[in-house]
Amino acid sequence: MLNTNTTRVWGIAIGMVCILFLMSASLVYGYTHTTWSKAFLAFFNPTTSNEHIIIRDVRYPRAVIAAFVGACLGVSGAIMQSITRNPLSSPSILGVNAGASFFVVVGVVFLSVQSLQSYMWLSFAGATFAFTLVFVLSSTGREGLTPIKLTLAGSAITALFASFTQGLLVLNETALDQVLFWLAGSVANRPLDLLVNALPYMVVALLLAFIRAKELNVLSIGDDVAIGLGQRTVWIKFFFGACAVVLAGSAVAVAGPIGFVGIIIPHLIRPLIGLDHRWILPYSAMGGAALLLLADIGSRYVLMPQELPVGVMTALIGVPFFIFVARRKVGI
C-alpha cells in the first residue's frame, strides 16, 4: 500500500502523530474523568488539584510506559517472526515472557532481589535462557526447525515456567506480595524509574535492529541464498535474536508479561508496507505502541470502575488473531 519511500516517511510522521494523540487520550480518559484542556494545564499550569495529580503522577507514566513497552514488543515480535520464519512467533508464544518472569521470581525468592536494576538483569537472563532453550530444542529432531514445533515447544516451556513460578510463589508469601502486581502484566501503577532503568537497553536494541534491518531482508529469502550472497546467517540470527531478547526482556522487566502484541503487529504491518524490514521494524514499533496504548485505554472501561490488567486485554484481542494466522498462514 505504502510503496514509495516518500509515502512511507509520511506514514511514519502520521503514525507518530497518532501515537501522540493516543498518549494524550491516555492522559484524559479513565475512571476520573478529565478534559483535554485540564490535561494540558496539568503540565503547563500545574496545580495540586486531584485531577492534575492523577494526570501527572498516574496517567503520564502509564502512557509513556505503554508506548515504549508496546514498541519493544512489536519490534521483538517482528524480528522473531523473521529469524524463525514462523508467522506465530512472538515473545509470549515462544516462552520468553514466561522465562523472564520465572527468573525474576527466582531472584526475588532465593536472592531477595529488591533493586529495579537486578529485575532487569534477571529478566534478560530469563528471556535469553527461554529463547535459546526453545530455539535449540525445536531445531533438533527429524525435520529441523518447523513453525509448529517451535510454537508447541514454546507453549510447553511456557507451561513449565508458569507452574514453577506459581510453585515458588506459594513457597514464599512475601515474594508473592512483592511480585504479584508485576506478574499480572500491566502498565498501570509502574514507577517511571522502572522505565528509566530499562530505557537505555530498549533504545540501543531498537537502534541496532533498525540500522541492520537490511540483513533481515537477505535472511528472509532463505538460508541457502543468504549464505550464497555472503551473509553469515548464524551470526545474523544470533545478533537479531539478542536484540529481540533484550527488547522482550526489558518489556517484561517494566510491565510484566504482556502477550500477543508481538504476534499481531507484524501481520498488520506487512500488508501495509511490504517486505522491507528497514520499514517493517520502525512501523512495528509504532504499531506496537499504538496497540498497547489503545488496549490500556480500553482496559479502563471494560470493567469500570475496576481495571483489567492490559495483558488480559491483549490476550482477548490477540487470540482470534492468532487463530486466524494459524489457520491461514501455517502450512499444516
Partner: peptide
C-alpha cells in the same frame, strides 16, 4: 490436522484464561 488442533487449542486456552482472570476480578 493434529498440529492445527494443538495450535488452536493453545490459543483458545489463552482466551479462556484471560476470561477467567476477568471473572475473578469481577
Amino acid at each position: 490436522a493434529p498440529f492445527r488442533l494443538l495450535l488452536i487449542g493453545i490459543a483458545v486456552a489463552a482466551f479462556m484464561q484471560a476470561g477467567t482472570t476477568v471473572w475473578i476480578l469481577m
